[in-house]
Amino acid sequence: MFEARLISATILKKILDAIKDLLNEGTFDCSDSGIQLQAMDNSHVSLVSLTLRSDGFDKFRCDRNISMGMNLGSMAKILKCANNDDTVTIKAQDNADTVTFMFESPNHEKVSDYEMKLMNLDQEHLGIPETDYSCVVRMPSMEFARICRDLAQFSESMLICCTKEGVKFSASGDVGSANVKLAQTSSVDKEEEAVSIEMQEPVTLTFACRYLNAFTKASPLSGQVQLSMSADVPLVVEYRIQDLGHIRYYLAPKIED
């Protein structure tokens, strides 16, 4: 028996919004420790890694490890049926071929359940090596989303250059060129507004704007985003989900021919 309950359906809606542009389907691996999903997009350029810890749920029970392959479009249709302040419970029997989403209104007067067929998905798990990144940038997630949106107008790819002075995002194309420089903040009122840079070595890498923009769909999950970069390895874009876990996106850099 698997059962996981969240007090607010909003968080699950936001998580789905953060992954459904990149993935059509995904396998949710459930165990005692929580729920994990790791999946690459069809072109194998980016990877989504979602971790939701069991202690972040209002209730969590997983008697036996269970992998649930879900069509994310279908899951989105079901989650649309939940109000934001509904409690959501995800339930499945061991070896089941369906999963049930149950939504309860705050006053418990409305209870709805939606059963969805599970899918058998070919899982290709990737071993991601532990990496000491040369540069780790933390910045407001909305600022990062804004920069990705703005620079995508100029080119399909974006250069990210990180030095100890700051981080620079650049794009150039037929229209002209764009550069956005962010310096490390010296003092801020709110921690969420801070820009911080930990640098061992300066790094310059080029990435496809389309994927970066897809990652920024996770912005509603977290006030801050963390970019981890080293020369010639995939970028990691991480959004922490308060008290519950995180969503990490990996993106292969553009490489010289």
Binding site: M40, S43, H44, V45, S46, L47, E124, H125, L126, G127, I128, P129, S157, T206, A208, V233, P234, Y250, A252, P253, K254, I255, E256, D257
Partner: peptide
């Protein structure tokens, strides 16, 4: 010029 890398060439398939 540059081409788009793929994750398979950086991470090992388990």
């Amino acid at each position: 010029s540059q081409t788009q890398g793929r994750l398979d060439s950086f991470f090992k398939v388990l």
